[in-house]
Amino acid sequence: MKENKVHNDSEYFLAAWSEGKISAEELKKYVSKEDFKAYMELEKGIHLYEKLEAPLDRSFQKIQEKIKYKSKARVRKLYVNWFTSIAASIVLFVGLYSLLGNNTVLLNTGTGEHKNVALLDGSEVILNSKSEISYNKRTWKKEREVTLKGEAYFKVQKGSTFTVKTINGSVTVLGTQFNVISRDNFFEVVCYEGKVSVKNNISSVILLPGNSVRVLNGEIIEDHQVKEQSPSWILGESTFKSIPLKYVINALENQYNVHFDRSLIDESVIYTGSFNNKNLEIALATVFKATNIKYKMTTANIILLENN
């Protein structure tokens, strides 16, 4: 009877061993030494296989638990971040307001208008028509810097570096008198007294009294000598020397409230001369008689230009 039972178990002894019903010691009885060794290795391998291939659901559940537990702890951190970002943006707003909102001084002139401006250090700026300067009150003591669009004549008091910034380049001086024009892509600096350094993103030039420099389409051209003590436009006259007609016409438009139809003329003609800033008729006559161009007032403030 007993023998029979052993026999029953032994028929599928490997299944019984795998299930743990018979021990490794007992298994020895059924198999050769070599097989036994192999089965022991196999058992280890299967054990590892079980672990490696274990169903994923439990692992995933555990991960979810860990994430839940962690996210509870993270709430506070998020809260702190909120606070810091609010604080940071308040600081930023206050900073921006004090930098831009309050301290920038902006001055401009309309068509045909001139304006005399005294800066904080006693320097003097005369703005030609349709021009604009701005500077920062707060940083003025540290660095004297103004931004210019258009044309202006500067009489700078001696002191620290004085910079005029324009989109076409910058002018740096210590204390002198000079004139700057920066309109569209035309840039001209004339030095009347002292020493002036002119820089654009390509090169830089130092001007002595009576020198001038001109930048046309990004190229620096050292230019004519100037004999006057101050620019002529201050005295009511605009003077030009070897400038494409285009810029002379632009200047007329800036000075008087008129527009020109230039479609029928060649604007690249070089012009030297001046025009009156007070009387449009005289100004038109001086410019266009000299260049042999007919002008005719058509509709409101539009003047048609035509070759003779």
């Binding site: 028929e11 599928y12 002894f13 490997l14 299944a15 795998s18 070599e34 097989d35 060794k37 192999a38 089965y39 290795e41 196999l42 391998g45 299967i46």
Partner: peptide, 14 residues
Amino acid sequence: MHGALKELRNKIGN
């Protein structure tokens, strides 16, 4: 099961 284990043992060799 018995057959499976025996088969595995044969496959992995000595």
